[in-house]
Amino acid sequence: MNAFVLIFLLVTTGSQAACLPDSGPTSKKILMDVRDIENAALDFEASVRSLLPSGINLIVRLEPNSPRTNAEISKSGNELSLVVWGGMLGHPEMDRGTFLLLLCHELGHALGGPPLKSRNGWSSTEGQADYYSGGSCFHLFEPNEELFLYSALKLTSIYAHVTREVAPDLQRCDEVQVLRTNYGYPGVQCRLDTMIAGRRNLPRPRCWYFPQTDHRINMQSEIKEEGFTTSDFEVQKFSIQDRIKKLDEELRQSPHQESINDGQKSECAAHYETNH
């Protein structure tokens, strides 16, 4: 059975930009045209179908009337449910590319692999979902590097607005070097660095990722994960073994193990150099 994707567009029907009710103090006009949102969601549906394991359904739900500036993915059996709330849809920085990158982040929780948020869980960490979003997923929609950088900067600027952090910058990089993997939310600069690293197939930045984390534990639990069919299981198992190999190589080649706490500047600033 082919995976299929259902998109529930709960935005106001009609082709003009929908207005949110004035009741909530954070309610605001959806600046991005409803048609653009619909089209972006449909593009997402068509493109990520190839990424989903067989038999897994994805439902995308838009809730413009909620003032929450956030998005979330949840999993129940064979169904992944992705919701984007009104504060996010109506954010002044939101546009097509930013919206797709946000959807890619949420999908990254389901498909990004380890490190997982929980030893026996299903969801990739925030950092890993960011890494996946910039790489495997967003590449399907935007081959242009400059436009990717623009979307990544906009999305992390929205995050900065919510968390009241200093806005991220393409000319800076997060110099923090963690001694344990961060399983929660990295800072917005770190998240921007991570999306770019994912895009450029570079190692995960050390601002959230510690290379010596034992991924085998995560992977074993991933293999045991219930809810996927036996055939999906095999597919998953195969891709996990591939990933174990890749991670082993990454660990062997990683210069970070020797450079922990050596005060060296992170390399990420150089990653931003674009070819003009």
Partner: peptide, 12 residues
């Protein structure tokens, strides 16, 4: 016991 956090895009 550390629970698995919800998979939101941003910490709100």
């Amino acid at each position: 016991k550390v629970a698995e956090a919800e998979s939101g895009a941003v910490d709100d």
